[in-house]
Design a protein around this nucleic acid. Structure first.
Lengths: 204, 204
DNA sequence: GTCTATAGTCGGATAGAC
DNA sequence: GTCTATCCGACTATAGAC
């Protein structure tokens, strides 16, 4: 009973969140007006406020939806067989590809690292990172016993994410070219660096 | 002649920029109101607009001032003697310390990587990074001949910067503790990783 | 659930006196 | 150079009809 009603409401909320993700990713919380969101969905502001009590809640729900989507995808990245080196290589490649594809998620992540309050940071940690973080840390311990797994896990993810963060700046730096933004190029460089240290191309 | 007049104007502009840096670093362009800046300096809005034609220009000048300050400091980080390994170690340590201290610069850098237009990104590249980037790339070539120096330079700086970006999230991730945010801990980890590859603590 | 209309506030920017 | 006073458009949020 009341199925149609609930379903309609549900899809309206989904449509709003879908429209809000690119807007907040592009301009951040204070850079987006509720009018813009309403216009992007094709509804009035009053209808928007019927589904979300205020702008902060809309933003939080947008973040939650984005991160929940990503948490699902992240689960498929690991659980590989092979030597630790092979598993690292595969993880880095898949992680790079996944992060390259979803610039909205990446931008929201960057914005949360700058402006996230404790609630949203806890959400980010527990929903998106925690499970994969433990797997990476475990892999790092196999490859580098005695090394701090927490620092290693952040370094591995950070190498990939920072190269993607630098995409807009790269073209203005010496030696930068569009090829450096390709996922497979970044993944190969990061893998070689992690497995070989600085002489990373001597062992190719 | 007209020295006092010019001097007064100069220090007023400086006072405004000094007050604007932490505000824009904290909340970003759209998160700061001109009224806030005026209040922080202790002047009226009209006076603020007497010195800067609009908000965009104030923001640009704030970024320019912050980056110009940093460009000076960056010059002192390099020019070391010793083996390539020793020079890398010293560079990473000093770079980490320098970036740890100035969170305003770091936040403005993060914000520009998200929202910077071409003008400001070119400024960032040429004023802040270019000179040091070439030095790091050169050092990387000594340590890893045949490896792409552009990718290596970004990886070296990125390892340090990403660990600092993760500071607010670290406490919610497995194994994270306040000590992981200390510059010397980060620098040691990054150096070991770069010189030894993943088995970074086996050679301590 | 969705709308039009609007309240009330805050934003960037300006006029003109001193 | 600095101020008070003000304009006015944009913003968040709400009221009330359908």
């Amino acid at each position: 009973m009341a199925k149609a009603k609930f379903s309609a409401s549900h899809s309206a909320v989904e449509a709003i969140l879908t429209a809000a993700i690119p807007l907040f990713a592009q301009a951040g919380f204070s850079g987006v007006a509720m009018r813009q969101v309403a216009q992007a969905v094709g509804i009035s502001i009053a209808t928007l406020y019927h589904h979300f009590p205020d702008k902060s809640t809309l933003y939080l729900k947008t973040i939650e939806a984005t991160f929940a989507d990503k948490a699902e995808g992240m689960a498929a990245v690991l659980a590989e067989t092979g030597t630790p080196e092979q598993r690292l290589q595969k993880f880095v490649l898949r992680f790079t590809e996944m992060m390259s594809q979803d610039s909205y998620f990446r931008r929201l992540l960057q914005r949360e690292l700058l402006d996230g309050d404790e609630t949203r940071l806890r959400l980010l940690a527990s929903q998106v990172f925690k499970a994969q973080f433990l797997n990476i840390a475990k892999l790092a311990q196999e490859l580098a016993p005695g090394c701090d797994p927490h620092l290693m896990a952040i370094s591995i993810a950070g190498l990939v994410l920072f190269h993607l963060e630098m995409t807009p700046l790269r073209q203005f730096l010496p030696g930068g070219c569009p090829e450096h933004n390709q996922p497979d190029i970044i993944a190969r460089h990061v893998t070689a660096l992690l497995l070989g240290g600085v002489p990373c191309c001597g062992n190719k």
